[in-house]
Design a protein around this nucleic acid. Sequence first.
DNA 1: CATTTCTATGCAATCGATTACATTATATGA
DNA 2: TCATATAATGTAATCGATTGCATAGAAATG
Lengths: 341, 341
Amino acid sequence: MTEKTSTLQDVARIAGVSTATVSRALSYPGMVSESTRDRVAKAVQASGYRINRTARNLRTQRAHSVLVMLPDLGNPFFSTILEGISRSLSNKGYSMLIASTHQVHATGERLVDYLDDARADGMIILDGGLTADTVRSLEKPPHAQRILFACEWIDDMDFPSVRSENRRGTSTAVRHLHSLGHRKIGHVTGPQDNVLTHARREAFEAEVKSLELPLPPEWIIQGDFTLTAGGLAAKTWLALDDRPTAVFCASDLLAFGFISELSRHNIKVPDDVSVMGFDDIGLAEQFIPPLTTMRQDRLRVGETAANMLLNRLEGNKDESDEHMHVVPVSLIVRDSTAAPP
Amino acid sequence: MTEKTSTLQDVARIAGVSTATVSRALSYPGMVSESTRDRVAKAVQASGYRINRTARNLRTQRAHSVLVMLPDLGNPFFSTILEGISRSLSNKGYSMLIASTHQVHATGERLVDYLDDARADGMIILDGGLTADTVRSLEKPPHAQRILFACEWIDDMDFPSVRSENRRGTSTAVRHLHSLGHRKIGHVTGPQDNVLTHARREAFEAEVKSLELPLPPEWIIQGDFTLTAGGLAAKTWLALDDRPTAVFCASDLLAFGFISELSRHNIKVPDDVSVMGFDDIGLAEQFIPPLTTMRQDRLRVGETAANMLLNRLEGNKDESDEHMHVVPVSLIVRDSTAAPP
DNA sequence: CATTTCTATGCAATCGATTACATTATATGA
DNA sequence: TCATATAATGTAATCGATTGCATAGAAATG
């Protein structure tokens, strides 16, 4: 019935040493003699001592936790990234706090509060669409050093970041379609004002241009990363006089929605049109048809993000101190792409 | 350039009162006179004071945070529940810590450490499959009061819990199929040794029995909540001599996998066989065909879980103090079920 | 007017760790 | 052998809030 957990004092008393010695025995074993090390170890064992992290945090002025900020917790795209972040953090004894942008907004909290009130040492932001106000408060010196963007980022600001190879991924996708024989390639974009949308769209246009393919403006269809938008895009595609024979979607969900809607109209993928996604989420492999897509290594994005942030927080300049880390993407060819009809 | 955030002392100095008064002005405004309340408010404003939660937590012996324990962060099923939990917590000024069972296991941490080392005041566990060791450490008095299970639970133990109506949901599903005219109904289960698997399977058998339908053992196919298992189950179904005309799957993912595999074999849903899921995850509506399923209100499960736990932690006996809260599920009829061929 | 109650505030201890500095014991070197 | 460097430990301040107790002044009571 250990009603109250025991403290350093208890351990010190049992071991017959001072609290300072116990603290050192635990944190810097090399600083104490072997015999006291043993005695302390036994005392810890006997008392079931667990360090009180709150006390440690207060004294050391660290929270030993990192806040992860997402646009929307309900979106499954982020869960694997979280898994990666969580792994790296817990390896180094950090806890992971989670909050969502629109929730913070709703409760009137400011994002920097997490830093200012010592709840978190740093934060990983997965949302490039922060309000201008928020961004302004983040740029200021005491905060800027503690922030890292992952997946998304903010143009014209140089917060450190981890991202996938959006440009190379996009051009790889276009070249894949081209190599299958497609000469009329369309694109369904992400939401307006999103950095990923821009990056992929620009890369798409550049690659199409360099392959000297035609690109009438109506072959670029505005979407927003969701299933629903994919369905709408399919309707737009159906209404075209001159339809692309292949479509590169900016996300897998878009591609799913696109294909689903087409199948309602009895149009077959890949027989009638080839469709590609971006992300390689879990369902892509099981979808009908299994989806050709660009795989983002979300686990690695997460792990890298956490490691980079921790290195900065702990001032490990030695570790390869990049400002922007780009994680490779890879082409996963499945059955949703084929030669044009 | 607020290099260092200011403390209570700073505010006290500016306002010309003691730190005790400042603390009271902020926490119990009614205890101080109006004039000091104003002076303190101005001083807070002027200094940009933010409370240091670590210090407060140490003094008050609370962490003001709750740990949420999931089996696997990568599983999108949980994200909406997290959203719900997070909402309730942040409304009451708590932070949400996240960890996954298999990760805690991997790092050699014990689950109770989070409680013992004062990182969290309580925890919400979404994983009924904890190791016996873990459970044993959780039952002990100082911990048991701080734990709540959501979605899943552990049989024969009476931790407080929030769950969906698994039994009623299952019998509703079976009756839906029955009312369409099906008399041969099969079931694809969740993973072995899972409480939800048992609850739904038992309810399934009971309902089938009460409707006096046949149920040869091979109509119950072992699965595990995943897409892949759904595909395998479809193969099993295909190999049956006498096939059920309707199949109730224990999760939506199972149903997706099941339907996908069937369509590879040119078997149409719902024309050739009706298929139901359980959960109503985001994709269910967009799937082809849109999936008939039992909707779990995951947001509400999450919110309720957080509220119940907080009430217990804060000792609000007054609030309707149930031990087990059951959240209703609802039948969502879409296009994957129809009359038997 | 004297006494009691109430209100608003201050003083200082406290939560449980870490760590600068002081101190003692031991080893090293001349 | 004595001075000095080194190793091991202890003492006590510290992090930044909260809160029990004490107190001064105002208000209420007789």
